[in-house]
Design a protein around this nucleic acid. Structure first.
Lengths: 226, 226, 226, 226
DNA sequence: AATGAATGAGAATTCATTCAT
DNA sequence: GATGAATGAATTCTCATTCAT
């Protein structure tokens, strides 16, 4: 029936406008900052009335939530197709790491502004959003830790505190992502960064083997902390 | 003279109250968030009138600036006394790294809330503050890079892109500092974290030597990026 | 279309409300004084929210600017239709003066409060407004001087310092306007005032001719001034 | 006794400081405007504490009152010594007018800023001050009218509405005083201005005698006013 | 559904005045 | 008497949200 067609068209138009509002808001949040961006900015930039914004989103915070979910969805979408067979030697582990990072980079590459926004503003929006973001980071850390534990158990990763190390890896990732989004990595290509980071993670920057390792000495030596 | 005594006492009281206001503000910024904290909160918590806050600080932003400068000052104070002789072998490098980190940890340990505040809110206050903070991180990265370059030149660090690696190290540091400040490191002691991180940085978590390194292969293989 | 009608109606309503706010503000400025009138007074008197005032005017100063421009516009509108042929004898000059003053009086009569407000508060609002007002007075003085110079050149006005005399005429005008607006002229009709002033300007109040004139003696006799 | 000397010295110092505060306040009122000048400006400029200002004056308004009274006192002081014999012919009238104006000018010359301040800000301070100032002007107008009525009665001034004409004369006086105080009279000397004004008042700027006078026709002709 | 005018709660900021020292 | 730190009432201005059209 005609009304079905019409309804479909309306639905489509609505979806398009919602997307338009999201992208306009993201751009403004990035440019002016989340707190400094006011609803009327978004409405004006999207060429709609202020009231219209409220037809699509509950409030400003709701817009950010949608942007966040969108990003999270895109990232995890990538991993849904990954083979879940865990690596059984260092070469496989390294290859899998590189593959996973490449996927992430590919997603983030198309959403630089959004990523920058989330990393920069996310922790300071409010307690709830901060915890949601921290939860995301935690999930990523758990993932990294899972693979690291597997490698340690399989004997192709050094004995180490996988909880700490996996967090450190996430720290590197978030930090580099942020630098890259804000253009502070200069002309380094993502691939270059990626390989350097994987090398650092697997080999460190030292020359020797395990000589002088401090690991394992803690507890015996508190290093002078009070 | 009496008036001198009076002036000295006034000066002292003023300094005490300024400090009181700063610490109250820091606590509130941490608890409620910078944006959600309003001047009257600070005044009420410090048991003074709103106007009094304005006698000591231009506005809310000015309070944060003072907190930031205070922290930066305390951190760099530690390094002013460090021997500047660069390490000449890996053991020295590692020892110097540990010593420097311990100093930083010692400072930050007394300012957990403040550190958390700056890391969390700093990037989203406004452009100016964000750049000031980024400048601090950049300085730290330069410092790390300087030592790394020295080690590479001296043959006791692996050939690597020191720009990327040093940034990664800063990323680890900021990340761990943040986790620690927010209590998300659980019962791990700073010393334990420190040694794990240094081990990771010097040796990586891999077992083998340089096997399978990706470094140097970039350019020949863009990894599928478009 | 319906939306056109709607827009037109909205436009009209907006214009009406703007006018309402202006007249309410003018009344309050006159009654309480500009500085003593606060935005919430205006909003309350106009039965609108405070925020609404800010939808129409940038701030209190902006309201005054609009009132001033409105008045200036109304005054000069009157002169746009006047014949520009300059008078060629004293009778014509006198008639033209009377006609011009009548026009001004007719305009001001409908805006007593506003005129009073501008004369009273104008000079003390701020430097900018003061200069704008002084500029208006200066324009009026130039106009008077132009006609006076013409009359002197034509031999139907006495030799005199037209710069000083024209300023004196403006002084009389502003002063009488102010007295009249504030009701301090009692039951004198504007027409009566007008004719007295014109007589004074053309003939002075003396009986004799030019006897005893001081004009032209300055320079020879500085009258004791140092 | 010593305490008498001391008391006298204290009294003197107090008077000096009071004068200092008044002159500092006047300068600030002129430069920044009465409303824009705050107590702490005055205190800072006079190099005293804010509280000290309140030892000498009740509040800001009180300072202005004192400045006003000071000026009024100085002006009327001049007239206290004037012979009170009224003029008996036009020449005497003219001479007396000139003499009186010269006295006024001599006083005002030393108080330009103060005069400017009073003329500019006086009417807008508050109702009370405005009325006080209007009262002063009214007194001056009464004085002028008294002499004018005397001259009309004596036959050496034209029949005219002395109420209106005397107000017009005050208008000229205040206007010229203001122009002069603000430097907008350029290089015209006070004496020059004075003589031009007296000429204008006694003779008008017209050439003819009473030709075309409108005076006396009012009432028969309302001039088109509605 | 779309609009944008209206709203008023809420936050920042100022400054006259008080008062302990 | 002098001081200037402290105060909080008062005012301006913003902006998220509602709602009549």
């Amino acid at each position: 029936m005609a009304s079905d067609l019409r309804r479909a068209r309306d639905e489509q138009r609505k979806e398009r406008r919602r997307g338009e509002l999201l992208s306009v808001a993201a751009a403004l949040f990035v440019r002016k900052g989340y707190h400094a961006t006011i609803i009327s900015d978004i409405a004006a930039e999207a060429r709609v009335g202020q009231g219209t914004v409220y037809r699509y989103f509950k409030d400003k915070r709701d817009i950010l939530d949608h942007l966040f979910e969108e990003l999270v969805h895109k990232v995890f979408e990538q991993f849904s197709e990954m083979t879940s067979r865990p690596p059984s030697n260092e070469a496989e582990y390294r290859a899998a790491s590189v593959e996973a990072l490449r996927k992430v980079v590919n997603v983030l590459d198309g959403e630089r502004d959004l990523v920058h926004l989330i990393i920069r503003e996310g922790p300071s929006i409010d307690r709830e959003f901060g915890e949601k973001l921290a939860g995301l980071y935690e999930r990523l850390a758990m993932l990294a830790r899972y693979y690291l534990d597997n490698a340690i158990a399989g004997g192709f990763a050094r004995q180490c505190d996988s909880k700490i190390v996996s967090q450190a890896l996430i720290g590197i990732g978030v930090w580099m992502a942020n630098l890259w989004c804000t253009g502070r990595l200069g002309d380094e290509t993502p691939e270059r960064v990626l390989s350097e980071i994987v090398d650092l993670a697997f080999e460190g920057f030292g020359q020797s083997g395990n000589a002088n390792s401090l690991a394992g000495t803690h507890g015996h030596n508190n290093g002078g902390f009070d």
